[in-house]
């Protein structure tokens, strides 16, 4: 099964939960960090690197000698990445979304496939678990293309039958949706604060159309207020686990430790969470079968 650990609000403990789940997961499991703008899972899992490669996106490269300035490329491009400026054919690589429209529409072959670096893909093993992450290039505006390549690369380093835990980026827009869309179960990590509750509400709205089972982990339970719990009740989404507010947990995190290892009480909580997640993937047989 594939589990995406996501959250509306950043800094609620996604990486803490993802790293802890990987440590206690009872079956063979792989880890994938898709928060390519701010990847942090490796800082806690300390994977041994096996390889890395740069990731590229196909973008057009101009061949002015062939251009007849017909403007078909410039007309189709919605992102101002290809322009005919007077009698100059110009490509702005940073603007390109890689749709391939200009390459397909040019009747003269004046645009050839070229490439732009998106960032890098790094893989290795964290204990027994295959590990993979993406890290975007500084100044790169688009995350989803790199995320897609990280996902595609996973099949080369992990057998398809093993489970997968995904550390997703924060927020509820494109990159976050992209990270959770292939998962079987989405775990939303939140905190019992006004910010946590508001952003959890946004996450429910963003991810509900995907039609996947969702569950909530309340981190820093005991600090703040109960709005998060009332929201989960209203939306009929289960609170799968509560990790208590405890300075010792924050300190263990600050030292780069996997919290489930460092704090015994948390280990039990995360083990129980793992069992519940496994049960969500294997729903109980329906009543009618027994009737």
């Amino acid at each position: 099964m594939k589990i995406a650990v996501a959250s509306g609000k950043g800094g609620t403990g996604k990486t803490t939960v993802a790293a802890s789940l990987i440590h206690v997961w009872p079956d063979p499991v792989a880890a994938m960090d898709l928060d390519v703008e701010a990847p942090n899972l490796h800082l806690f899992l300390h994977p041994e690197e096996i390889g890395r490669c740069r990731a590229f996106m196909e973008i057009p490269e101009p061949d002015e000698s062939r251009c007849t300035f017909c403007r078909k490329c410039s007309d189709i491009c919605q992102f101002a990445a290809v322009k005919v400026l007077g009698e100059v054919l110009m490509v702005f690589p940073e603007m390109c979304h890689g749709c391939g429209g200009c390459l397909a529409v040019c009747p003269e072959g004046a645009l050839r496939p070229g490439k732009r670096e998106l960032g890098e893909i790094i893989w290795g093993t964290a204990g027994a678990a295959p590990f993979i992450m993406g890290r975007s290039r500084i100044g790169e505006a688009m995350s989803p293309p790199l995320m897609r390549q990280v996902k595609a690369h996973l099949s080369r380093i992990a057998p398809p039958q093993i489970d997968l835990i995904i550390d997703a980026p924060p927020g509820v827009s494109c990159p976050a949706v992209n990270a959770v869309m292939d998962a079987d179960v989405i775990v939303l990590v939140t905190e019992p604060t006004p910010f946590g509750a508001f952003d959890l509400g946004l996450a429910f709205k963003a991810f509900a159309p995907l039609g996947k089972p969702m569950g909530v982990v309340v981190n820093r339970a005991g600090i703040g207020e109960d709005a998060v719990y009332r929201l989960c009740e209203r939306q009929k989404i289960a609170v799968l686990a509560e990790i208590p507010y405890d300075r010792a947990i924050a300190e263990a995190y600050a030292e780069g430790r996997v919290v489930a290892d460092a704090v015994p009480a948390v280990r039990g909580i995360v083990e129980a969470l793992a069992r519940q997640l496994q049960a969500m993937d294997r729903p109980a047989p329906k009543e009618v079968l027994h009737g």
């Binding site: 703008e37 701010a38 790169e140 995350s143 927020g171 990159p175």
Partner: peptide
């Protein structure tokens, strides 16, 4: 500002 270092942050 937003978190991350991508499009909205830029």
């Amino acid at each position: 500002g937003p978190p991350g270092i991508g499009c909205p942050v830029i």
